[in-house]
């Protein structure tokens, strides 16, 4: 089993993801540089948080058009597991792998805070280890986490059961309190909160770790 974390020049949570995968979960994990198209036979691709190419344009807009994202799209089409965290979620939306878009936070400011989430689904490869309906604490840290989708799109998300995480107390104005969604096929997950920052008791909790453990579980199956 092999994880790959994509490294854009402005990624800044890539090392944190690697740390959780390698040091805490003892998994094989590699970094993939943004201008390559070789996914090195990874079983799960992680798009980490950060500022990919500076995000001076709309966040994730440039990264969605990078060489590696073409490979990631093809990988996702083949059913490969793709996890986008924060900036990674923004990139997945910009790349069209997930519906909707992340807009600037409602208060127009960067928000870094602890966050309480409600889990809507435990039947995904990313959430199988959680208890149904669990309350999960994971921090957020973003300027553009205000998820938007039009009403028809929202209906579709709800009908297909694609909403995986909702904020207990909506911090950023996201539509329908959406913190994380999955694609229809169920192999691409994007979320604004940072599971890799909630993977050790000493950092205040490890409820994010179960997300990575869920992936390992489903890849083993």
């Amino acid at each position: 089993m092999k994880f790959a974390v994509i490294q854009f020049p402005g990624s800044n949570c890539d090392q944190d993801c690697l740390y959780v995968l390698r040091d805490i979960l003892k998994q094989e994990a590699v970094l993939l540089w943004h201008d390559s198209a070789d996914l090195q036979n990874a079983d799960c691709i992680i798009l980490p948080g950060g500022f990919s190419y500076g995000d001076y344009l709309r966040t994730g807009a440039c990264a969605a058009r990078s060489p590696i994202m073409k490979a990631v799209s093809a990988f996702a089409d083949r059913g490969g597991l793709v996890l986008g965290i924060c900036n990674g979620f923004q990139i997945l939306c910009e790349a069209g792998l997930l519906p909707g878009v992340l807009m600037r936070n409602k208060n127009l400011k960067f928000i870094c805070d602890d966050c309480s989430l409600t889990l809507e689904r435990t039947d995904t490869p990313f959430t199988a280890r959680y208890k149904p309906g669990a309350k999960i604490d994971m921090p957020i840290a973003h300027m553009d986490g205000n998820y938007y989708i039009d009403d028809a799109g929202l209906k579709r998300l709800e009908k297909n059961n694609q909403i995986v995480f909702r904020y207990a107390n909506n911090p950023n104005g996201a539509k329908a309190d959406i913190a994380g969604i999955i694609n229809e096929k169920g192999n691409v997950l994007g979320l604004m909160p940072h599971p890799e920052r909630a993977s050790e008791e000493v950092l205040g909790g490890k409820e994010g770790l179960e997300l990575f453990q869920s992936i390992i579980l489903s890849l083993r199956a």
Binding site: C13, C112, A141
Partner: peptide, 11 residues
């Protein structure tokens, strides 16, 4: 404080 990312780095 809420405008500063005080957790990145996971340390």
């Amino acid at each position: 404080w809420s405008q500063y990312d005080h957790m990145v780095g996971a340390n």
